[in-house]
Design a protein around this nucleic acid. Structure first.
Length: 267
DNA sequence: TAGGCCATCTGGTCCT
DNA sequence: AGGACCAGATGGCCTA
């Protein structure tokens, strides 16, 4: 495969008629509305998203009062507004048939080459922007995960696994609260070395050793593992994998999620 | 220095 | 036709 950066034929002369300036830094990219923006707890400036926090808080406390699954309520609150750039495909894939093109009519080989090169450059630019948007979303996901600032930045796969496990841990916590009842207004979840407090007055994340937790990673590799779940729900959602033993989630460390190892306290 | 991670390019496929 | 999405290839950077 040729690398255009080394290919002398891959020039970006004005002859191509295409402006090579990166659109990732242009207004077209930066001003494009992000359909997922409103579903982030933290906005790009790390300020809490009041709308989403309110929804989560409402769902959480309604669940505590009505003994209903908070995740379902939260889902219900958001579902009506849910948008996705990758719609679910329920139709069988149809084979794409290349139609006869009129484009080649009355075009010299050099013109065709130039047109192809321009299209390729435009496609490269779109792909670059697409990946930038994906990375931006991953960065925002990193921001809402309880991590230590002194640790290295989570990789992409670590971020996704961490987020999956973190969400699962929180949902397990909610399930246990619904089972046991919640006498107070605040719930504290111990996530490894991190303490997550959820209350009507807001949520907070802190470290057990009083260190400030902002970004980075929890120094506990097992938390990054891609746990499977053999129980109902996750399996139905396609999360099934290797599975884990009942009552344990995280092995011999201090991550206690689900089952008898779950740690939470009422304040 | 090997391996992991990442950004980018590229061509194929599908969809509008 | 053109855009979105995807996966493979490639080269650069960093770290153990």
């Amino acid at each position: 495969m040729t690398d255009c950066r080394l290919d002398p034929a891959y020039d970006d002369s004005c002859d191509s008629g295409y402006d090579l300036s990166f659109k990732s830094e242009s207004s077209e990219y930066s001003e494009k509305p992000d359909p997922f923006y409103e579903y982030d707890f933290l906005q790009p400036d790390h300020a809490p998203n009041p709308s989403l926090l309110d929804k989560f808080s409402t769902a959480f406390h309604s669940a505590l009062e009505r003994h209903e699954p908070a995740a379902d309520l939260f889902y219900t609150l958001c579902a009506s507004e849910a948008k996705t750039s990758t719609p679910v495909k329920d139709k069988p894939k149809k084979r794409y048939v290349q139609s006869r093109s009129r484009a080649s009519r009355s075009k010299s080989p050099s013109q065709i080459l130039r047109i192809k090169r321009v299209r390729r450059l435009k496609a490269n630019d779109r792909e670059r922007n697409r990946m930038h948007m994906l990375n931006e979303a991953l960065d925002r996901l990193r921001c809402v995960l309880p991590t230590f600032p002194e640790d290295t930045k989570l990789t992409k796969i670590e971020t996704l696994r961490f987020a999956h496990n973190y969400i699962f841990a929180l949902s397990q916590t909610l399930n246990d609260l619904e089972r046991c009842g919640a006498p107070g207004d605040c719930v504290t979840v111990n996530v490894g070395n991190v303490v997550v407090s959820i209350s009507k007055n807001g949520n907070s994340i802190s470290a057990r050793n009083n260190a400030v937790v902002t970004s980075g990673s929890i120094g506990n590799a097992s938390f990054m593992q891609d746990y499977g779940y053999e129980g109902k729900g996750c399996q139905e959602e396609g999360f099934g994998g290797g599975g884990f033993a009942s009552g344990g989630y995280g092995g011999n460390n201090n991550n206690f999620y689900g089952g008898e190892g779950l740690m939470y306290e009422f304040l």
